[in-house]
Design a protein around this nucleic acid. Structure first.
Lengths: 346, 346
DNA sequence: GTGAAAGCGCTAACAA
DNA sequence: TTGTTAGCGCTTTCAC
């Protein structure tokens, strides 16, 4: 067939010739920059349209911007992330910026470094790091190189902006809900975090802390019961098995993430216990999983779209003003009660 | 803080000076190109390491390659896609190529064009289009510009390579399985496709065709019962409602995608019917959804990792040899039987 | 095997 | 307001 010669790309020079103006003029029109009369603009726009010209981002990147925003997703499988990406792309829809996603290996710090470096090498104008596990100094390194917004991680830095949900409140919402239903023996499955530096910043740790605080607030300090596994389906399964073996079984389990709740449900499917009759289950993130008919999991909604939109706003702002002080946006989660929570067995 | 001056990037000139060689030499080492002695290589490698040099992709792109592979995902929410991406990144792990994902709007042809154009503008060395809905001429346009592999779409073109599963066989696997269990009244929920050009190429259409062929092969041509909705949870819900209203209710439903099966299960949850006691359900794609404990859906596995790995192989090959004839890889799906299928009620 | 020099397509600094 | 010119960091001839 005809893949003979990939026809030479139309360049800014072609447009300039066609419109009988200088390349500078074309460049100015492209960037909506100062110094081009309406008449000139019109001429250039027309030439661009007629020739089907599209600026070559690599060349633009050599001098100015690439108009590309890099989003590092540590785990594309996490059903919470698409919401954030949607919010981002939607908010950037009217701008010339394009979002590209970098797949970081799941829970793999090495992979995270690889992807962020690769994105910096590719001249991203700004970066969004979604729930990164990298050390803070690593994040600051990225942020020093390119405007950066960190999503879903507590702990500030003057180097980057952050957008996160108030996980302390979110955990309290779950406990309040369960206590309101009459539960007292409410257990929690958390993601084990050994690194003390990370401990204070990762959402999982904050959720566990929120759970403890809320339990105490309800006078249930003695009932605090935490199992440490991981934020995976298997972690939920193993955690549930442990909890079910307790002499005094809990009447409700607050899983730190929806995917963990899935594992809990799986473990329960192997027993005679019913949900929510014998045991109430709540998750966190309100992922699409939770909304599935056969699952119908009570969960905490983080308003991912909103998070993404906020990140976009901060990004554009920071691109314009690299030196401004860093901003921390904290959003409020809401509880979505579904069919996995009910009053405890009497 | 110190975001005062993002320190100037180390360039190839710095490396050349440090190693006391020419920039050409450094470039050759970077690309493993011919014309650099082992001694020279060693010197340059050391300088690169000492200075922490990283090549700037935009600059490379101006003359040569950007070492970036663009993957267009029409719907990041589809839990089948991460498998493909994993297969791709894994297969490319030993190469200098980096995978970047472009989020195409769900089922939105306009968005698909936007993302692919954006990726071409950004100098991708090759593109992977996952289950694109764009017209064939559009795909060929992309492929003429940059080496392209199309995944999950039947129909060849000399312009691009394809990797897909044999959906005809996959559908037959489901029917065979259900017939083997004793079912005769097996219904199918398909994704409605109006565009006749697309009809022959989209997997959904092929699955429906495979269902029909398999039914006839079992002498069940008269039992063929297809409901046309969409490959969404809602589509499954509505499709199931229609099927449950039939005077002769089917004893099994073959949903064209896992997400459709979720909708079916949701519809059933509103009735007294049990799964699989009264009704067997099968999906397609063997997504993570299907494997979830509380779901445990019988499904067809497409070996996404394998698909991604094949795509990577074809891509690298095509980058080396732009003119070679196009290749079509077809993989065989397998059936994963779980707890939503059983013999029909007697 | 090695390096000098040209230039990829664009933007920024400057001059007109 | 407009155009001229000098690079950005790399790869690619093409001499040596």
């Amino acid at each position: 067939m005809e893949p003979s010669t990939p026809p030479r790309r139309v360049t800014i020079v072609d447009v300039a010739q066609h419109a009988q103006v200088s390349t500078t003029a074309v460049s100015k029109v492209l960037r909506n920059a100062y110094g081009a009369s309406p008449a000139m603009r019109a001429k250039v726009q027309q030439a661009i349209a007629e020739l089907g010209y599209r600026p070559y981002a690599a060349a633009r990147g050599m001098r100015g911007q690439t108009y590309t925003i890099g989003v590092m997703l540590p785990d594309i499988r996490n059903p919470f992330f698409p919401e954030i990406v949607d919010g981002l792309t939607e908010a950037l829809g009217d701008t010339p910026y394009q979002v590209l996603l970098g797949p970081g290996g799941c829970n793999n710090e090495q992979a995270e470094v690889r992807v962020t470096e690769a994105m910096i090498d590719r001249g991203m104008d700004a970066m969004v790091l979604v729930a990164p596990i990298s050390s803070r100094s690593r994040l600051e390194h990225v942020a020093r190189t390119v405007p950066t917004v960190v999503i879903g991680r507590h702990g500030h830095s003057p180097a980057y902006d952050t957008v996160s949900d108030d996980d302390l409140t979110g955990a309290a919402l779950v406990v309040d809900h369960l206590v309101g239903l009459g539960h007292r023996r409410i257990a929690h499955i958390e993601h084990a975090e050994s690194d003390p530096a990370r401990l204070a910043e990762m959402p999982n740790a904050i959720r566990a802390e929120g759970y403890k605080q809320a339990m105490r607030a309800h006078g249930l300090g003695d009932e605090i019961d935490i199992v440490s596994t991981t934020y995976t389906q298997e972690g939920g399964y193993l955690g549930a098995r442990q909890l079910l073996d307790r002499p005094r079984r809990p009447t409700a389990i607050f899983a730190g993430a929806d995917i963990v709740a899935m594992g809990v449900l799986e473990a329960l499917a192997e027993t005679d216990l019913t949900v929510p009759g014998d045991l109430s289950i709540a998750g966190y993130d309100n992922t699409t999983l939770a909304a599935l008919g056969p699952v119908s999991l009570t969960s905490v909604d983080q308003a991912g779209r909103h998070i993404g939109a906020e990140a976009a706003r901060l990004l554009l702002d920071r691109i314009d003003n690299r030196q401004r002080p860093s901003v921390q946006v904290k959003l409020s989660p809401t509880l979505i009660a579904r069919r996995t929570t009910a009053p405890p067995p009497s």
